[in-house]
Design a protein around this nucleic acid. Sequence first.
DNA 1: GTCTATAATAGGATAGAC
DNA 2: GTCTATCCTATTATAGAC
Lengths: 186, 186
Amino acid sequence: MRPSRNSRQEIVQKLSQVFRRDSYSGASLADLAAAVDLGKASLYQKFPEGKAQMGAEVLMEIGRSLENEVLSVLRQDGPPAGRFTKMLAAVGNFYEGGRLSCLIDTLSLGEAGRLYRAALTASIERWEQALTDLARQAGYSAAKAAIWAEEVLITIEGSLVLARAKNDPQVFRRALKRLARTFGER
Amino acid sequence: MRPSRNSRQEIVQKLSQVFRRDSYSGASLADLAAAVDLGKASLYQKFPEGKAQMGAEVLMEIGRSLENEVLSVLRQDGPPAGRFTKMLAAVGNFYEGGRLSCLIDTLSLGEAGRLYRAALTASIERWEQALTDLARQAGYSAAKAAIWAEEVLITIEGSLVLARAKNDPQVFRRALKRLARTFGER
DNA sequence: GTCTATAATAGGATAGAC
DNA sequence: GTCTATCCTATTATAGAC
């Protein structure tokens, strides 16, 4: 059976929501403890190295969900266009329809950027690579595939920023719908 | 003559760099004071309401530079495509070639988002409107113009996020170059 | 106007009881 | 494993001298 009703994975996922909403510097220990419904001292029992460790584990866990929920569908079989459509649906869920920000954004600012640069770069590059591979399978040249992959990520990140700033998740959803039509254009 | 060698405008511009690098919660009074080479107490002399006021004035000042350096070129005369190209060059300077983040991103997180939502939304909408007007002048339908404007802003914001996360300003510069080719496509 | 000094509070982290 | 209590530092903010 599970180690506890609130597994470590569930704890880390709840912590991730705080970092996604408030960024690293804006997430206080009090906020983080409240999110998992524990005292601060209990959090330190689980994360002896404190906030820096929480951020690191959040990045690993979200990297894993990205892999399992989003990138894996790019590698299934069937026509590339259909896999891309499925990925976009998964992305919509991953960011809760534009209501959640991306850690690539919120953990790349200030000191967090220096702390987590390597992990952030790695996540981005895995995603870009999976998209590039997909585009290659659809017949894109290597150069076109890499550009298209970069554009997809730019659109996802940019629409999340605008959705947050305007408090209008529809910006993100519209962008996903338009992205669906960019595949196979060239 | 000027009120001081460091005019208020210059002070606010230096403060803006801290908010753009570290976000609102990550910008400490010590950081902000160091950026303008003053003691913390002197900063409070100039901004009696503290950090919240600094953020508000930074947003106003950057909104003004955006207007003067970027949006104004969209409203000059000459062919729309040329104006758009000029805007992209101005955008490149505005974000220092991808080395500076956008306040729409860094001031929309956590409590800052609640504090400054109105100002952020207003800035975004002014920019979108100027782009939409340009596209209309180039013969786009109202619907296509609005979509294109949104896509341009999404690309700017998204490429800035990725450039920061990967510590590679080229992501931003490449995106601007590609944007130049999106105008007049439909 | 700017500074040093200092207050007051919040944030990160730990000790030790249960 | 979780809590209360506490410590230490950083942070926000102010008082008062120059």
